[in-house]
Amino acid sequence: MGVHKEQLTLVIGGGAAGIEAARVLGQAGYPVVLVEKSNRLGGVLNQLASSFPRWEDPAQFVEPRVKDFEKCEKVRILLESTVSGCQKVKNGYQVKIDNKGVAEELQVGAVIIATGFELMDLSGYGEYGHGSFANVFNSLEFEAVLKQWAAGNKPEKPPVVAFFKCVGSRDRSKGYPYCSKICCMYTAKQAGLVKDLFPDGRSYVFYMDYRASGKEYEEFVRSVIEDKHVRYVRGRPAKVLPENGRLLIRCEDTLMGVPVEVRADYIVLAAAIRPSQGTAEMAQMFGLKTDAYGFIEPEPFEAVKVQERVFLAGSCGFAVETLGALQQGAAAAAQAIAVLHQAD
């Protein structure tokens, strides 16, 4: 048995899914190389101000896991590194790694792709003015604003913040007919945070419906509406116009069938989630099957197995929340272990 444990597993991407996969492998005694493009571990979690449905602090995520890495002594972390090439060999892949500009070659027995997502480019949504109006943000940009506010850098007057859901998602004309799955939840989280920071401020959420299918998710959204008094307005905003330094939103309240106008200080667009650049590169490099939008597609009736010795974890397969990324990371690690055991 011990002999198999010498085979290396390559984890590509140091976000929630990649970290979890590396941790499970390392704790099981399997050597791992974790390749991360940026200069720190944590991925999107580093950008977040809070999390749903339990309002956990994302800053608390990475540290205990890094301790686990140190304890098991099996995980080699390569920051500012990328996978630059691969070749199929017997029982695995020969991969080329660009480690801070230094080329390195490794033989690996399994590969876990955890390259994550990115938000769609919003320049096609001229009606919302992202890029033209200073206070129109996409949801990740707004997380940074929230962090600033939480750190005490607050605007003087309690702001009015309007959240638009389904910007891109469920929009055939923009090429994203799918539901991005997590926006309902993080929008509720952000709108609730605004009300926490500014009890006298206002949060509006413009929605078509809210999809809260998950443990405690529905309760989370309801608590944001009922306890934090975030105003949900049903209707997709049609346009944003500048008005005396503020932003005027026009839309229909489809429940009452009346046109409504709201003036806001900040607008947050829950942009559609699409596979990241790295996902596309890795899919091409390893010859992985992708769906029409570029998300990596697992084999039939497989959760994370993409092909022999290649597994996916996290949002490179489809938009998942942190919990889903952790589940997939653990699942991918378990499957990698299984495959390394079958070697020879």
């Binding site: 409504v260 106008e261 709201v262 003036r263």
Partner: peptide, 10 residues
């Protein structure tokens, strides 16, 4: 006469 949602109160 669009409804001025921000002028309505609770």
């Amino acid at each position: 006469k669009a409804l001025q949602l921000d002028e309505t109160d609770s």
